[in-house]
Design a protein around this nucleic acid. Structure first.
Length: 282
DNA sequence: GCGACAG
DNA sequence: ATCTTGTCGC
């Protein structure tokens, strides 16, 4: 059952998707709309959100969509919502939103219904915003559908608009020194990572504010909101069906809405993978 | 045939 | 996206 998510959609579908992107693109607001965005210290900003979708190992359909909300500037998780979902659309470069965005919109809707006071003032999205083949990446898509300011953060450069990950580009990356250094598209999120982040406008925020805010949300290479969403969605998958042994019944194959949770406080912190905390040298 | 390919 | 635990260093 359900292997649709692996087959590339027919051109007809892609045409429909392109048309939808073109229509929604007209609604994107590329610029600051909130007072805090223009404030040097982001005063007035109290809650930043992050979303992510993690996948089940050998399965192209099952996944966990997560939405977390962190306090700002403390960056402590105050809300978490993980939900197992069944993906219907395959991943096609340039159409990531059609695969993931419906579940992210659902998560935002649950948050608005159950904890309206915790709705974030800006959402970090794992993927590009206007840095996209048709200027409408997943961060724009989610922004328009939820009307929330969104920032697109990609870990790899999507070569569009004549951008090339060539020697020139790599040289510019190499020239980024301290964490926080950036040029229009790439940001060195912290001192000890040679790989940059690619930040772009999603919705209702300027590139300058998006980059500055991303910088303000990075404890490690990946902005904390997206990093926490990623960590928690993967943990959720492990807890749900990661360990074999005693088969945990009670889990039906249908989609089951999980109870969004308000988090009292955080636990331990630790660096990981490419993310390196300050490393001392003599 | 070669390179590109967000997640 | 996923394949991955322990390990070296402060």
């Amino acid at each position: 059952m359900a292997k649709e998510a692996e087959v590339r959609p027919p051109e007809e579908t892609l045409s429909l998707w392109k048309r939808e992107q073109a229509q929604l693109k007209a609604l994107v607001v590329d610029g600051d709309t909130e007072a805090w965005q223009r404030d040097a210290a982001f005063s007035g900003l109290r809650r930043v959100g992050g979303v992510d979708v993690s996948f089940v190992k050998g399965d192209s359909v099952r996944a966990c969509a997560s939405l977390v909300v962190l306090s700002y500037p403390e960056l402590e998780v105050v809300y978490e919502d993980c939900c197992m979902v069944s993906l219907t659309a395959p991943y096609v470069s340039g159409f990531l939103a059609f695969r993931e965005v419906p579940f992210l919109v659902d998560a935002v809707r649950r948050l608005r219904e159950k904890e309206p006071c915790l709705v974030p003032q800006v959402l970090f999205v794992d993927g590009n915003g206007v840095l996209h083949h048709r200027g409408f990446g997943v961060a724009c898509h989610l922004g328009v559908l939820t009307d929330l300011p969104c920032v697109g953060v990609a870990k790899k450069l999507l070569q569009v608009d004549g951008l090339e990950n060539d020697a020139q580009h790599k040289e510019k990356i190499r020239l980024l020194q301290a964490g926080g250094d950036s040029f229009p598209l790439a940001l060195k999120s912290h001192d000890h990572s040679s790989k940059p982040l690619y930040v772009s406008v999603g919705h209702k925020i300027s590139l300058e504010a998006a980059v500055r805010l991303t910088r303000g949300c990075c404890r490690f290479r990946i902005p904390e909101p997206v990093r926490q969403a990623d960590i928690r969605s993967r943990d959720y998958i492990r807890r749900t069906l990661g360990a074999p042994g005693p088969p945990a019944p009670a889990q039906e194959r249908s989609q089951k809405a999980q109870g969004p949770k308000v988090c009292p406080k955080g636990g331990s912190e630790e660096p990981e993978g490419e993310d390196r905390p300050p490393k001392a040298h003599s």
